[in-house]
Design a protein around this nucleic acid. Structure first.
Lengths: 257, 257
DNA sequence: TCAGAATTTGACGTATTGTCATTTTTCGAC
DNA sequence: GTCGAAAAATGACAATACGTCAAATTCTGA
């Protein structure tokens, strides 16, 4: 039998973990309701119905709490990436699936994405706990690894021959940068729709296809119907997420009317 | 003769404009010294040797002051872009020059770039004055226009045939996103050097070249020595800026030792 | 039931933003 | 040069938020 000491200890641990989740849940909800400026530790304490001191036992400072949110979001993102990378498709299709998952995540969790951006700024980052930073790095390494593997698969299957001098990692970095940059610019307030870019996701899709064709990553789009891949992703793989997106949009519309 | 009333009025205006510059200068310096967190309006007031109330006559709130900094940086960036776009080179070379200028700017003014990112977050942006927002939009439109024009030149000169469905604006947006995203990821603290990307600028150069070759933008790199273009940019066009960068690095090294 | 440990609490010290009544300076007319 | 009004500068003050810590409360094992 498990000794009673250990039993209570583990119960305590579970309670603490549960409350940490509760705090993060409330913080996430508040972030949506009152925005980044309006989010205060007092408000969080009130929302979770614990005192501020208790919150501070879980998180060293406000930045650390935000970093906790960021960490959870990153984990969610990684899970989406993993699903995309693990699909039974050609490497090039899987890369497209990952890009799709990324843009989907950003549309599903715009606040978290904005939060992640703020959190990554140097001044905030250096105030977060070493624990959080470490966990974050682990996820980042996993993401980088998952992404790079898809390109490696493309190379080893013979679908892709990397141009002289360009490594897998560099290619992935630049692809990542494109997706990330596009999303960042998308929420930056610059009215790109007025400047001839009606749909960022659409522009990215076309760009990616042309880029991969340009690298001669087989099957190239003349030989394969990548629009069908998009449909497959939308209607089968990420159908649930897209539905949530629609529901959210409807709820918001109903609220505002 | 100019009537005395107008004389004093314009002098006042000049004084006010000069002090606004002074405030921005001090704020920029403080931002470098004490960081974003440590920057307070009291400190700025102390640095410019005026009272806080006077600062608030120039800027509605702290965010507005930061937006002022952001605006100045954007103007500097636009000036660099204009220089690059106005060079007597082929369209493809000019595009490379612009990308070079962008990465150069970010290395020259990392704090301003980080600041610009923070400022673009929705919560901060909506607190800035309408005046600042409008000025910002003007610059953004100018940048977009300058960039798009280079692609249009490529098309009209026959060097580039856009693939079916992809517009100039969408292509520029994606290129911009790549540069912006790469810079953002670069300052995000993710140790890409450990993940096989030793030099972000280097990765971008190779990526851009391959991308433009893939789009069959003439002259393609087999027909033209783009490394020579890079050298030309480094040694002739942006030599002064690169020197400043080196000087900065030396100063920093001397400080820390 | 109880003593001691662990946990929770919220009032408090410090810092920061933004305001506004008061003081100081400037300006033009006489 | 002097005066009164207008413009500008000042800094004390209210409001708010972060993070701390001594006191209060709860829990635990005997």
């Amino acid at each position: 039998m498990i000794p009673p000491l250990m039993n209570t200890a583990s119960r305590k641990q579970r309670e603490i973990a549960a409350r940490e989740e509760l705090i993060l849940d409330c913080a996430a909800r508040l972030l949506g309701e009152v925005g980044y400026q309006g989010l205060s530790m007092d408000r969080v304490a009130e929302a979770v119905e614990y005192s501020k001191g208790t919150i501070y036992q879980h998180f060293d400072c406000k930045e650390d709490l935000l970093a906790g949110l960021c960490l959870r979001s990153s984990q969610d993102l990684y899970d989406l990436f993993s699903r995309a990378a693990g699909l039974d498709l050609s490497p090039r299709e899987r890369l497209i699936a990952i890009a799709f998952a990324y843009q989907l995540f950003i549309r599903l969790h715009p606040l978290e994405f904005a939060n992640m951006q703020t959190l990554k700024s140097a001044t905030v980052r250096e105030k977060t706990s070493a624990e959080n930073r470490c966990a974050m790095q682990t996820i980042e390494a996993q993401v980088m690894n998952t992404l790079t593997q898809v390109v490696r698969d493309g190379v080893s299957s013979g679908d892709l021959t990397l141009p002289q001098g360009l490594t897998c990692e560099e290619l992935i970095f630049c692809l990542w940068a494109t997706q990330y940059g596009a999303a960042s610019l998308g929420i930056s307030g610059i009215p790109f729709a007025d400047y001839g870019v009606p749909s960022i996701a659409g522009a990215l899709q076309k760009f990616n296809n042309n880029l991969l064709d340009g690298l001669n990553w087989h099957p190239v789009s003349k030989e394969f119907d990548y629009a069908a891949t998009q449909r497959y992703l939308e209607q089968q793989v990420f159908n649930a997420e897209l539905r949530m997106l629609q529901d959210d949009a409807e709820t918001r519309q109903r609220k505002s009317s």
